[in-house]
Computed example of a mutant assay.
Amino acid sequence: MIRVLLADDEPLVRAGVATILRTDPGIEVVAEAGDGRSAVELALSHRPDVALLDVRMPVLDGLGAAAELRRAAPGIAVAMLTTFDEDAYVARALEEGASGFLLKAADPRELVLGVRAAAEGAAYLSPRVARRVIGELRGGRMSRGDAARERVAALTPREREVLALVGEGLSNQAVAERLFLAEGTVKAHVSSVLQALGAANRVQAAIVAYEAGLVGD
């Protein structure tokens, strides 16, 4: 069972997202919050698998809440709820350890997929904003491509294969199935890749994979 904390200051939005998540029998919404400070407190007391945080909230916004959770409870995966015009926040959210960006107005299935991906340690970008997110982060693919390729060159061939699949948003289990490896072996490779790249999380590693040309447009 995937345990989720949901935080959004709009009660109707929060109720709608909670209803969608509860359609999946493998997901349980264990707590709800209307501001970032309450979200952090509830996350620390309930220890959910995933904290789904609205970007804009009173008292403490979602980015600030993500930062606090990264310091106090790094084992809790964080995914951000956003609207289509808020992707300028993405770079800062990545710095705070967010592993997913989900549109409030997305297909309900995307919310479920995003939460499941975050719980499995995978990166997830809502398809409608993926290109804008990458564009915001990369600051010009051509200008950063050489640096990314240099970082990737330090990886072993197997690690590059794993990185490419992480860049596609695959979970450890999916990578293991694709490469015919044990999931524990994939976890070890992912840890080595993150350390070698100096990436704080899988989303940052996925961006490097994209910039280095390991993942197609």
Rank of each mutant, 00 (worst) to 15 (best):
14 R>G: 09
185 T>M: 01
188 A>V: 14
156 T>Q: 12
47 R>W: 10
142 M>F: 01
75 G>D: 15
17 V>Y: 00
43 A>V: 08
42 L>I: 06
61 D>Y: 12
152 V>H: 09
178 R>V: 03
169 G>V: 11
6 L>K: 11
137 L>T: 09
90 V>S: 04
105 A>F: 06
30 V>Y: 01
1 M>L: 04
177 E>H: 00
196 A>F: 13
178 R>H: 02
84 F>M: 11
26 G>Y: 06
198 G>N: 12
147 A>Y: 15
27 I>G: 06
115 V>R: 02
30 V>F: 04
139 G>I: 09
8 D>N: 09
29 V>F: 07
172 N>K: 11
149 R>L: 12
2 I>L: 06
82 T>D: 13
169 G>F: 10
185 T>H: 01
188 A>N: 15
130 A>G: 06
201 N>F: 03
113 L>T: 15
164 A>H: 09
116 R>C: 04
18 A>M: 07
121 G>K: 12
74 P>W: 06
11 P>W: 10
81 L>M: 04
162 V>E: 10
95 E>V: 05
160 R>Q: 11
20 I>W: 12
174 A>D: 07
125 L>V: 14
90 V>Y: 04
70 R>M: 02
165 L>H: 14
164 A>Q: 09
207 I>M: 04
150 E>S: 15
85 D>E: 15
79 A>V: 00
148 A>G: 10
35 D>P: 09
129 V>D: 07
27 I>Y: 07
177 E>F: 01
196 A>Y: 14
8 D>F: 07
114 G>A: 01
170 L>V: 10
61 D>W: 11
16 G>M: 00
126 S>E: 12
167 G>D: 08
169 G>S: 13
13 V>K: 00
100 G>P: 01
40 V>E: 05
98 A>E: 00
158 R>W: 12
198 G>S: 14
34 G>L: 13
44 L>F: 08
25 P>W: 09
119 A>G: 07
12 L>Y: 05
91 A>C: 11
94 L>S: 03
204 Q>T: 02
202 R>T: 02
170 L>P: 03
140 G>T: 02
154 A>N: 13
